[in-house]
Amino acid sequence: METGHRKALQQLARRELPGLYALARHLAGQDAEDLVQETLVRACRASGKLDDPGAGPRWLRAILTNVWRDRLRARGRRPDELPVDEPEHFSLYATLVEEDPLPYSDTLHVDVLGTFSAQDVHLVLQRLPDHERAPVVLRYVEGFDTYEIAAMLELPLGTVLSQLHRGRQRFERALWECAEESGLLEQPTHGTAVAAGRGRR
């Protein structure tokens, strides 16, 4: 590989390292470091294919997603596996209005969501099965469109749309479960709802 390509890749990788690690944590949890390491090696081997330097951040994230997908398959799991249980329709908004944890608030939904930190959101996402978490993370955390996600996961677009729908439902339900477990309904506090709740248990 040319020295110029290598230096450009090193600069890109250093700049994107925190974001890559964050994505790897969402997708692979404890295996995040290993996933980023393999991503860097694979990116090095493919760096000649990166024509547009501006596309570098998304290119690296696509490689990381490919590595994660390949690892999942190597373990006999498939990113397109169908869920055993179809989540029942769930509306967090309707649940909040009915349960009314903050009865004196005019901005109920914002107040409740404001109690979740970035770490809480990460923990809630970890409750989703792999095949639903990945599309939700890639669409709403990373900003890829559904066509790009289908290409990265090597899935039909319809499968990705279906997984996204299920994943959003499960995410809303998991947020509510975390709010209940963390004692949010009894004692609302601003900051780390899930982490604080875990500490109290």
Binding site: A22, L92, Y93, H109, L113, F116, V121, V141
Partner: peptide, 20 residues
């Protein structure tokens, strides 16, 4: 509920870069 979903999407985009 539409406004709430907008807030949910914003919550999902909360940066986690400091977690490295």
């Amino acid at each position: 509920e539409l406004e709430f979903v907008r807030e949910l999407r914003t919550l999902l985009r909360t940066p986690t870069a400091a977690s490295l």
